[in-house]
Write a protein that binds this DNA or RNA. Structure first.
Length: 723
DNA sequence: TACTATTTAATTTTT
DNA sequence: TTAAATAGTA
């Protein structure tokens, strides 16, 4: 066996990881150190050299994109298609197991996956049917609570109410939500993971089958695993499995959605004798950029410790620009982009990064004015569009009549005379009889409704039945085509005046082509429609603009993780914005912001610009802010400060404030506001001042209210009473 | 039921 | 500022 292609162009550390014996291995892989490469080569090594069957390999990633990339690279390295190789996202693999063992998992065969939007709607409906005030119980917060519990692997009966009535209420919502989902055969994202975990935990036979089958577990982005994902892996590994996990504690930026870096430590305890390999040689950035990143991240206390280095040149210094305001900042960025493009560089090789999405606006305006094509990451994806979800809801109703989520979505879309009152009746009937809306509709139509409403409901039910009948046996593509027309959706959106309706119709037709090009996996043994619907939920599709056009890339630093660009701008480097106000007080939060900064810096290959504005318009008012503390953490020798070429002309009425750098920002004198001061608010009640910023009419305070939680309020509007 | 006025709050996001 | 959600009106 010639192992050359698999290990020849690896460095020592990479090779050590790739060729490690079949024992638990933890690879700490710095940014740009060839993390994916190691994973891919490890898989190839196991299959080609160790003679491991592809079937006994399980590779897990967090995103579909990463999974697809890994599969592609393994195939091209081995130069053959690897069938039967389980490679996918946690959710995708969990889903696959649940489809195979739906009975053991306690699910109906045609269970449907709901996304977070569906989940939220479902909760709102639940509150309505319980006649609960949704300002007292915010649906978003309930959703957050439920998902957090599921991420921790907890069912309602496992949660301690701690004697807190509010908490008890939350648990009860969770319970009711679960009942609705179970009745409708609906599974949300967190549920996929939780069920898959329970499936293995409670079925000794299945567990030992999968444990025997999957000897090698490869895990990408290990620092991002949440409790349930880790538990699932732990279970699958058993005593004899060989986990090979790759991650970077310094790039852990998703703690807020349940990711726990601690799993890196936990792993070493759970698998004694774990081999640890550190990848510190970076192949992406200049030494200057790496040194800056190293210096910034060194300010974090809780780290495994790691220093990136390169054999490459020092490169250019990092340029820091102090803009007057956010417009000036945008102008500066656009000027540099112009130069970059004029020098013959590809626009797609440049990226503008920011902390929060709202920042893209000014930049976009500037880019449009300058006529520079750009692409904003994030935003609505194809399968998340309202009209697409409408069409999918019809399809789901055809697949499963008890899917309440879909039922409510389309029962009166297009308008067919089934108004809020009728729906309300159905809802309470369904609730009283613990049945689905579909059953309730049938029962109500023949009894409680007046002629008009009864006819409308019956007509709707007949329509669904007719669609189901006519669509049976057709190709997936034709099924979708029939449904978008028969449902009346196409005509409904055609009537929408203007371009909006047109785009919607186009999207619906696009859905038909999506169905046409969808290739069901024969191994899945599912009805093509069910598989298509699952695919739609699990992989929401491309966001926004055409990816292929050569354009400047705009995105948050979170979305930039895993990407690299020769030219990078990090905008809005101001305290309060980045690090974000909401994270600044909590040391853990601040460390996570710093890791985000580390991620941002390490995206740059050659040139990095960091910009901040002295004045920024946020939520419609001007704020003054200090440069981000992270800028000061970059050693001076790597920084070149850029001064405006000519004195930028400033509008007369916005004179530069006299208080600059280092000035304190506590609006102390006014109203006797000080930190720790107790205050009373008309609506939110009593609370304590945690934080304050700005002066005069702009002054804002953060108040921790006893019952309403912490909020930022504008002092001049809030009418706070002190006492 | 559809359109318009008012209110409210405002990180980060994948599945 | 502005986007979204809600309440009110034709």
């Amino acid at each position: 066996m010639d192992v050359t292609p698999i290990i020849s162009d690896l460095n020592d550390a990479q090779r050590q990881a790739v060729t490690a014996p079949s024992e638990p291995t933890l690879v700490i892989a710095g940014a740009g150190s060839g993390k994916t490469r190691v994973l891919v080569h490890r898989a190839a090594w196991l299959i080609d050299v160790e003679g491991v069957s592809p079937q006994s390999l399980l590779a897990v990633t967090f995103t579909n994109k990463a999974a697809a990339e890994m599969r592609g690279r393994i195939e091209s390295l081995l130069n053959l298609p690897v069938n039967h190789l389980w490679i996918g996202t946690f959710h995708g693999l969990a889903h696959r197991m649940l489809r195979r063992h739906w009975r053991e998992a306690g699910l109906p065969q045609s269970f449907q996956i709901i996304d977070s939007d569906d989940q939220l709607r479902l909760l709102k409906r639940l509150l309505k049917s319980l006649e609960i005030d949704d300002s007292r119980w915010v649906p978003k917060e309930i959703q957050w609570f439920i998902n957090a519990q599921k991420d921790e692997g907890l069912r309602p009966q496992h949660i301690d109410d701690e004697g807190d009535p509010d908490r008890r209420q939350m648990i009860s919502f969770y319970q009711s939500y679960e009942e609705i989902c179970q009745r409708g055969g609906l599974v949300d994202f967190a549920e996929l993971l939780l069920r898959a975990h329970e499936l293995l935990r409670d079925n000794a036979e299945l567990l030992s089958h999968y444990q025997r089958r999957f000897r090698h577990l490869l895990v990408d982005e290990f620092q991002d695993t949440n409790a349930i994902q880790y538990a699932w892996l732990r279970l699958l590994a058993g005593d004899s499995g060989v986990p090979f996990v790759v991650g970077d504690d310094d790039q852990s930026i998703y703690r807020w959605r349940g990711a726990r870096v601690e799993h890196i430590h936990r792993f070493q305890q759970d698998f004694p004798g774990t081999r640890v390999v550190k990848l510190e040689q970076n192949y992406r950035s200049t030494a200057t950029i790496l040194n800056a990143a190293n210096a910034v991240i060194a300010n974090n206390a809780s780290r495994l410790g790691k220093n990136l280095w390169t054999e490459g040149a020092d490169g250019e210094p990092i340029k820091v620009y102090s803009a007057y305001n956010e417009r000036d900042e945008a102008d500066f960025v656009i000027g540099r982009l112009r130069d970059w493009i004029a020098q013959g560089n590809a626009r797609a090789d440049s990226a503008v990064l920011y902390r929060s999405n709202a920042q893209s606006r000014v930049l976009e305006e500037g880019l449009i004015n300058a006529g520079i094509p750009y692409r904003v990451y994030g935003g609505l994806r194809f399968f998340e569009r309202a009209e697409i979800k409408d069409a999918l809801a019809y399809l789901r109703l055809i697949a499963n009549r008890d899917d309440d989520s879909s039922f409510e979505r389309v029962v009166n879309k297009p308008t067919r005379g089934i108004g809020a009152r009728t729906v309300e009746l159905m809802r309470s009937y369904a609730r009283a009889n613990a049945c689905s809306m579909w059953r309730a509709a049938g029962a109500i139509a023949s009894n409680d409704l007046n002629g008009r409403a009864a006819n409308a409901v019956t007509a709707f039910m007949t329509l669904i039945e007719r669609m189901a009948r006519e669509v049976r046996g057709l190709d997936l593509e034709d099924q979708v085509d029939h449904v978008i027309h028969m449902s009346g959706l196409v005509d409904f959106f055609k009537k929408d005046k203007g371009e909006k309706g047109e785009t919607r119709v186009e999207n619906l037709l696009e859905l038909v082509s999506a169905a046409k090009s969808f290739e069901p996996d024969p191994a899945e043994e599912m009805a093509p429609l069910d598989e298509f619907l699952s695919h739609a939920a699990l992989e929401a599709g491309e966001g926004q603009a055409d990816a292929w056009e050569d354009c400047v890339q705009l995105m948050t630093m979170h979305s930039a993780k895993g990407l690299e660009f020769p030219l990078v701008f990090i905008c809005g480097m101001e305290d309060g914005l980045f690090p974000h106000q909401r994270s600044i007080a909590d040391p853990n939060g601040l460390e996570e912001e710093r890791r985000l900064c580390y991620v941002g810096i390490t995206r740059a290959k050659q040139t990095l610009y960091v910009t901040h504005a002295e004045q920024r318009r946020l939520h419609g008012m001007d704020n003054f802010s200090q440069p981000s503390r992270f800028i000061a953490e970059i050693p001076d020798e790597h920084v070149e400060e850029i001064r405006p070429r000519v004195q930028v002309s400033r509008p007369m009425h916005t004179a530069r404030p006299s208080r600059k750098r280092g000035s304190s920002i506590s609006p102390g004198g006014e109203l006797g506001i000080r930190l720790g001061q107790r205050v009373r608010h008309k609506k939110f009640g009593d609370g304590v001042i945690l934080n304050c910023e700005g002066q005069g009419a702009h002054a804002r305070v953060e108040v921790n209210f006893e019952s309403a939680g912490t909020k930022w309020l504008v002092l001049s509007y809030a009418n706070l009473e002190t006492f």
